[in-house]
Design a protein around this nucleic acid. Structure first.
Lengths: 256, 256
DNA sequence: CGCGATTTGTGCACGTCTTCACAAGCGCCT
DNA sequence: AGGCGCTTGTGAAGACGTGCACAAATCGCG
């Protein structure tokens, strides 16, 4: 029937089924689709159209179809996508068929919350160890897990198949922790510390910086404010501006 | 001297100094530059080259120069950028010259951590209120702030100039909270709940989903694993594959 | 059995982002 | 004063991502 073939293995019939190498943008959206699909499955839907799924995931429907087509997806024209099948496929592509072990380093304010966050457990991950450098925190029990000292990392890595690490330490400690993680074979790091990590090639780092997100929002606030204020106040708004670049720039323009 | 003009106000001489409308990608990087610059300032640097700053921020130096040029930046050729001046400019563009008030809704696991996170305070924000719908949490004191009931939101908004809200509730409550925030005039929302929010036009929403970040890393893990495994095992790897799409696809290819 | 309604998958054009490479500008040294 | 080395700012090209619009495919119904 369907002559479907992966984009990743185009010509060679019977070629090894390497993962199609998806565009990064697509990969970043797949988890969102997955979440929406689980919701749909829980509410009894068996199939869903690209229109319906894209609405649930908050994206354009054409984009969704293109994304799914990249993974050689099985929709049926005139009907839509089989929810269960699509879940299975996306979970396979994302490597979620096995529950991945994650080491969480840094049990401070944020690390504490992460340790208790159900979202990790419910979406394919298992916190295999809580680690901290602070001896006074070692031994503390959080959510059924005991905090161990960071020096136990090699032991933990030996006992578990540990590929992913989460860094929730202060920025000053992050690089050292990253080095330790890499040393025991971790090849993916989720970094919550506000700093740049340098890691060897082959190691993936994703960064989440809560303050940065707010600062981006702040920019848009600033922009919205300046847009709505100016048409009303006209040139008078000039005097309200801080010294920075805008004033300099503007003064030159006026001086001409 | 410098005939500099904002891209945002191209032709009109003496035009109102609207913010240059920066590319979204640039906006997302400015906070990172800002953080790097603060580090440099703290370590006594007065100027920095694009090479140096880009290294500290973890980006390409050409990209950094282009980003900075977008905001009509003042570097000096042969020397570099004045650290203090650049900080001032970026902070102005990001709207951080005023300390912005933020309402944090949802004081569960994550909200608790966010309430205690210094990064907000140290980077231009002030948590103006902690709110929760759970009456048993109301009255609790976190980091010097008392948790108030979500119904007090209008009161809070009236007392403060409140433009930014952070949602750290369970997904089920997020949409309702978003509506309430919008109703009191919030125009930027940072959403930690794993769901899509629908908001009126003019309201910005940024989403942070911790599990999604891990799932993206998981994909890369999966990919790395399949890349290193296949050349060694060859076609035998076929039998090791899960039932999902790969098997279906492959079996068809084999069956032919 | 054929037709129309519906929905997927995708070619194409457009816009955005990235990167290279280099001219223009600046300071320093002689 | 002049030249030299360094660094910025930017034009142009290419890679990437997006969205439209439509042909191809499937189902259900008469």
């Amino acid at each position: 029937m369907s002559q479907h073939r992966h984009p990743g293995a185009p010509g060679r019939a019977g070629a090894v089924p390497t993962l199609p190498d998806l565009p990064e943008a697509t990969v970043a959206r797949l988890p969102e689709y997955l979440r929406a699909l689980h919701n749909l499955a829980d509410t009894g839907h068996e199939t869903v159209s690209s229109e319906g799924l894209s609405a649930a995931a908050g994206v354009n429907s054409a984009k969704l179809r293109k994304d799914l087509s990249h993974l050689g997806s099985y929709g049926t024209r005139g009907v839509g996508y089989d929810v269960a099948l699509l879940i299975e496929q996306i979970e396979y592509v994302l490597g979620l068929t096995q529950r991945r072990a994650v080491a969480l380093v840094g049990v401070g304010n944020l690390g504490h919350a992460l340790a208790g966050y159900d979202g990790f457990a419910s979406r394919g991950f298992r916190i295999a160890a809580l680690l901290d450098a602070d001896a006074s925190r070692v031994g503390e029990e959080i959510n059924g897990l005991v905090v161990r000292h960071i020096d136990d990392l090699p032991t933990v890595a030996a006992a578990e198949s540990l590929a992913i690490g989460v860094i929730a330490t202060p920025a000053a400690a992050a690089q050292q922790v990253a080095d330790q993680l890499v040393a025991v074979g971790v090849t993916s790091i989720l970094n919550f510390a506000p700093c740049v990590l340098s890691v060897p090639e082959g190691v993936d780092v994703r960064k989440v910086d809560l303050a940065i997100e707010l600062q981006i929002l702040s920019f848009h606030e600033h922009r919205k404010a300046s847009l709505t204020a100016l048409p009303a106040t006209g040139g008078a708004a000039l005097t309200a501006l801080p010294g920075g670049f805008a004033a300099t720039d503007t003064q030159e323009a006026i001086g001409t």
